Amino acid sequence: MRHLRLVPDVTSIDFMRYTRFWLIVSLVGVIGSIGLLATRGLNLGVDFRGGTLIMAATPEEQPLSVWRDVLGDVGVGEVGVTEISDDTGQGRHMVLIRLGTADMEEGAAPAVDATRAALSQAFPEVQILQVDSVGGKVSGELVRAGFLAVLLSFLGIMVYIWLRFEWQFAIGAVLSLIHDAIVTVGVFSLLQLEFNLTIVAAVLTVVGYSINDTVVVFDRMRENLRKYKKMPLKEVMNLALNETLSRTIMTSLTTLIALFAIYWFSGPVVHGFAFAVIFGVLTGTYSSIYVAGATVLWLGVKRDWSKPDASAGTQFGGAKA
């Protein structure tokens, strides 16, 4: 029985040859992303900024410019209109309306009532399917909760890798995850895509995917460190990356196929999520090699887990499989 192979069974790619160059690229990406966040900021969605989301539908398609003209005359603050798909199969034309009112605790109900009245007058057969409002206080709490979720995930992963392997691996893994998260958020700042709680979930998904790929490489590297005690660390790492290359490509490819299907065939509501995870899968695969792996190569690691190795600075004795 023949199996599908995207790469040969045995490869000898020198991944670590251009480590310095790719580390510089990663550093530029992180610094550039931080610069974009400081200058351009994020296009925060209703979850973080406060406001109202209204899902409306009409039997016949109406140009988005008409919706915007109608809502622009209502005087309810910033208005955004996005076309979304009707998954019910009823053939309705559906839109998602964003009202960026400043203080939702006081202004939500009047803004929604004024919007309903204007839409009913302009489109007599319009249906208001859903209304969601988020106040300024709640949005501030969501910002803190989202940041705390990402931070705690980093800390938890660092502790796990430290216990599972060694502290050098833990530092490499966390630096890789920080790189992935910052660069992904930086792309949203660059393109000014809407950033909401769904994107926070996407970032956490990317963190999970990236650490899974990193752990697979680290586990194979540890096996080779025990097997080839005199082989230079750089060669051990190259060997581990080549031995896991087929798995990495197959996993990334199948994941990307599913994500592209979600991006192209689902509605605009999940486009941001799919885009963030697609970008994160690519950066996560890259950072597992040139951020996590390069960090371990720079810090050094011991060969024999049964006794401490002072030259590697590793005295923790709990990293046994």
Results as ranks from 00 to 15, higher is better:
245 L>V: 06
245 L>P: 00
167 W>Y: 03
169 F>S: 10
149 A>I: 15
241 L>G: 01
157 I>K: 09
153 S>P: 14
239 L>G: 01
219 D>Q: 02
189 S>A: 14
205 T>I: 14
193 L>C: 05
176 S>K: 00
159 V>G: 02
212 N>P: 00
235 E>F: 00
195 F>T: 07
186 G>A: 07
183 V>C: 06
216 V>K: 14
216 V>L: 11
158 M>C: 10
154 F>T: 12
205 T>R: 08
215 V>C: 07
185 V>W: 00
164 R>V: 15
157 I>L: 13
189 S>T: 12
216 V>I: 10
180 D>V: 14
188 F>I: 15
170 A>N: 12
168 Q>D: 01
221 M>C: 06
193 L>E: 06
205 T>D: 05
165 F>Y: 13
179 H>Y: 05
214 T>F: 09
149 A>F: 13
190 L>A: 10
206 V>Y: 12
204 L>D: 10
185 V>M: 07
174 V>T: 14
229 K>T: 02
163 L>H: 02
196 N>V: 15
162 W>A: 15
166 E>K: 12
235 E>G: 00
235 E>P: 00
230 K>A: 09
198 T>F: 02
185 V>K: 10
210 S>A: 15
171 I>Y: 10
238 N>D: 13
180 D>N: 01
189 S>Y: 04
153 S>F: 05
176 S>P: 07
232 P>F: 01
240 A>M: 08
233 L>G: 00
169 F>I: 13
199 I>S: 07
240 A>E: 07
190 L>M: 09
185 V>C: 13
213 D>H: 07
187 V>T: 00
167 W>I: 09
215 V>I: 15
155 L>D: 10
208 G>I: 15
218 F>L: 09
194 E>W: 15
199 I>N: 12
246 S>F: 03
163 L>K: 08
244 T>N: 04
247 R>L: 12
220 R>V: 05
203 V>T: 11
200 V>R: 03
195 F>G: 01
150 V>P: 07
160 Y>M: 06
175 L>W: 08
211 I>P: 00
225 L>V: 02
226 R>D: 08
250 M>H: 14
179 H>D: 00
187 V>G: 00
165 F>T: 13
154 F>E: 13
227 K>G: 07
175 L>F: 14
241 L>W: 02
180 D>Q: 11
202 A>R: 14
172 G>Q: 11
188 F>G: 09
159 V>Q: 06
178 I>V: 15
189 S>Q: 02
152 L>V: 12
249 I>A: 05
199 I>A: 05
161 I>L: 14
160 Y>W: 10
170 A>P: 03
157 I>A: 06
212 N>L: 15
154 F>M: 14
201 A>C: 02
239 L>R: 03
244 T>Q: 01
204 L>Q: 05
243 E>F: 03
173 A>C: 12
174 V>I: 11
202 A>H: 04
200 V>N: 07
245 L>I: 06
155 L>S: 07
194 E>Q: 11
